[in-house]
Computed example of a mutant assay.
Amino acid sequence: MPDKYPAPDSFEVAKTDAEWAAELTPAEYNVIRNKGTERATTGEYDKFYPEKHEGFFVCKACKNPLYSAESKFKSGCGWPAFDKCFKGAVVTNTDNAYGMQRVEIVCAKCGGHLGHVFEGERMTSTNERHCVNSVSVKFQKGPIPEGLEEDKVV
């Protein structure tokens, strides 16, 4: 999967570290801005399964719509898992941290760290698992905003 990560100053929502720190909780700031992670099975949305047409998930930092309730699935990985996102909602970056190579996913609007995407596990028809930190997203009840379509990241 090629990098699609734009320069940090090219995101639509650009704020200083101080502005982000004032708006986010310390846990949210650590994950969203410092690319941290929450402990497995501790997140609010790990075992949260809304009805398919009940709502959608947005970026906690900028409210950008990311995932439909329908795209969430039970993967057993300990974090919320989605098999597709709204077109153009996330961008990818190669993450070489911790001695391994993974594909990082960030919000396309603010650059906030969401988690990582894994391919080839055959858990769903898209063959993708977006492993997302609960503190990076917020569930919104209601209809999906008009004009949004879902797709794989690749």
Rank of each mutant, 00 (worst) to 15 (best):
G142N: 14
G147W: 08
P26R: 04
P8M: 12
G111D: 04
M123R: 01
S71G: 13
N64S: 12
K138F: 05
F48N: 12
F11W: 04
E150M: 10
Q101R: 15
S10Q: 08
Y29Q: 09
R39H: 13
T41H: 09
N127P: 00
V13A: 02
A7M: 05
V117R: 04
A18F: 12
G147P: 06
P143F: 05
V31D: 05
T92F: 04
S134Q: 05
K84S: 15
M123T: 00
I105F: 07
E23Y: 12
E23L: 13
A89Q: 06
A61Q: 02
F86A: 02
F56D: 13
E12T: 08
P26H: 05
K84C: 11
S136K: 06
F11P: 15
N127S: 03
P143S: 15
K84A: 06
L114P: 07
A108Y: 06
F118Y: 08
Y67G: 14
V135M: 03
Y49K: 09
G111M: 01
P6W: 05
G78H: 08
S75Q: 02
P50C: 10
A97D: 10
E54H: 09
A89N: 04
C77Y: 01
A7C: 02
P80S: 03
G88D: 12
D46H: 06
D9G: 07
T16D: 10
C131P: 00
A61S: 15
G36E: 12
A108I: 03
E149Y: 05
I144C: 03
S71P: 15
M100D: 11
K63F: 11
G76T: 07
E150D: 12
F86K: 00
V90E: 02
E12R: 13
T92V: 14
K35A: 13
C77E: 01
E19Y: 05
R33M: 11
A89R: 02
H113S: 04
E38M: 10
G55P: 10
Y98R: 07
A21C: 10
A7L: 09
R33C: 09
D83M: 14
A61T: 03
S10G: 13
T124C: 00
W20T: 14
R102S: 12
K141D: 14
E44L: 13
V13K: 13
K152H: 05
R122H: 09
F139D: 06
F86R: 02
G142A: 07
V153Q: 11
T124L: 00
K72Q: 06
A81Q: 01
E121Q: 02
C107F: 12
D151R: 14
E19A: 12
E54M: 05
S75K: 01
G147L: 10
E23Q: 14
V31P: 02
A21D: 13
I32L: 11
L66K: 09
V58A: 11
V153T: 15
E70L: 07
A7N: 10
